[in-house]
């Protein structure tokens, strides 16, 4: 009985996934749903052979490259910004409204303007990705840096610890769990950002492929590209989880094992 429960626990997600796929396939066949409405999983798989594996890799790498560069730029921007916001009330009051303005502007709507301003190269795509991904990083890091108990800060000041030691040795450890949560949110946002950018201007990439496929009614191919995109997001998310487990296992806290 115990082993059965163990197996159920272990394979339930996989079984659910296979079950959904089978139900989807059956529904498509049973109700003869045309491919332009909802392609069956078998049609989606078949569509992957329409272009060679090399071309798929080319599309995938283009998107991953933009997502990762945009993600790194977002991190490099967000951390100093968060320190500035925590450091000074004046900076916080000056910077925060701008960050909120950027965050509440629908990037999708201004993406074409960004492309026109910055040209059609890689730069506008990275900028769009960064704009979409960086906000949660700033806010979470700032929250983390500010979450240090006052007693600890007072203690460090009474021991005449320098400002940089205060940040590195007291504030940062408190911020790390917050930063990693934000890193996880931001990596999925970075993938979305790369796709948004490719919708607006790109010759290659999964976002471009989805746009191309839907505009030529190759719906199964669009689903295949979407599936690859989701898999890619999951994988990148997994990498961040792994990095946290390896680099800062203590920061996992109660959510360990997730």
């Amino acid at each position: 009985m115990g082993t059965l429960k163990h197996y159920a626990d272990r394979f339930a997600p996989l079984l659910a996934f296979v079950g959904v796929l089978l139900a989807w396939e059956a529904a498509c066949r049973l109700f003869a749903i045309p491919a332009f409405v909802l392609p069956a999983p078998s049609a989606v798989i078949a569509s992957t052979t329409e272009i060679g594996a090399g071309r798929w890799v080319q599309h995938l790498l283009a998107t991953v490259q933009i997502a990762l560069i945009g993600y790194l730029v977002a991190i490099l921007l967000a951390l100093p910004l968060a320190v500035m916001i925590t450091h000074s009330r004046l900076l916080s009051r000056t910077l925060l409204p701008w960050l909120i303005i950027i965050q509440s502007t629908p990037i999708v709507a201004i993406a074409p303007i960004i492309v026109v301003t910055l040209g059609a190269g890689m730069l506008p795509r990275v900028v769009i990705t960064t704009l979409i991904a960086f906000f949660p990083l700033v806010i979470a890091t700032a929250t983390g840096l500010a979450s240090v108990p006052d007693e600890l800060l007072e203690l460090s000041r009474s021991l005449r610890a320098s400002r940089s030691r205060e940040y590195w040795q007291i504030r940062m450890p408190y911020a790390v769990p917050h930063i990693f949560s934000a890193l996880k949110v931001a990596i999925t946002l970075a993938v979305i950002g790369a796709v948004v950018a490719e919708f607006v201007a790109a010759e290659v990439g999964l976002g471009y492929l989805i746009l191309f496929a839907t505009s030529t009614f190759k719906v199964p191919m669009a689903f295949a590209a979407l599936t690859l995109l989701v898999a890619c997001s999951l994988l990148l998310y997994g990498v961040i989880v792994l990095a946290q487990r390896l680099l800062c296992p203590w920061s996992l806290g109660k959510e360990a094992g997730q």
């Binding site: 074409p112 026109v116 301003t117 040209g119 607006v200 201007a201 010759e203």
Partner: peptide, 18 residues
């Protein structure tokens, strides 16, 4: 070649020099 997103997009790219 650079793909576009509609005639007005193509004209904007020409007008802006990209």
């Amino acid at each position: 070649l650079q793909s576009g997103r509609g005639s007005s997009d193509a004209i904007t790219k020409l007008a802006s020099g990209s």
